[in-house]
Amino acid sequence: MEILRQFAAPETVNANGDLFSALGINWMMLIFQIVAFLLLVALLGKFVYPWLIKSVDERQDKINAASKAASEAQASAADAETRVEKLLKKARVEAADIVATAKIESASALAASEEKAKKRSEQIVADAQDEIQKEVIAAKIALHNETIELVALATEKVVGKVVNTKIDETLISDALKAVK
């Protein structure tokens, strides 16, 4: 309230000379402060702000670059993921082909080995049959020879007992006649 009265009282205005004085503002100081402020602004504008702006710009550029790099990395990652997915798909297809080929090859190898084993077994059977046939022939020959030997031995025994001097004389006589 006191302050309002001072503003309202004409004497107060007149006593301090002007309104600025009444408000406690010193012109000289104000001008000085304005000049100092402007000087400060000029100095700041000349030396600090460009550096600060530059730093901010650089920081902004870095942020932008980082953002761009992050975007590129993200895109690259996505691309890589896509490529990996493609590679995986391709690898799966190739693996499936390889498995299918291996199955076919194993089946053909199995069939070939079965065929080989079959031929081998047939060969073994044929060889065994040949061997048996040879052994049978050899046994027949041996039996034949043994039979002849036995017949000869039996003949010797029988003849040895049957032949006497008289029969021997007859044999010799017939033989001599045959020679003549």
């Binding site: 003849v159 040895g160 029969i167 021997d168 010799i172 033989a175 001599l176």
Partner: peptide
């Protein structure tokens, strides 16, 4: 020679 059995 008895082993000749017979003949000459």
């Amino acid at each position: 020679d008895p082993t000749v059995l017979g003949g000459v």
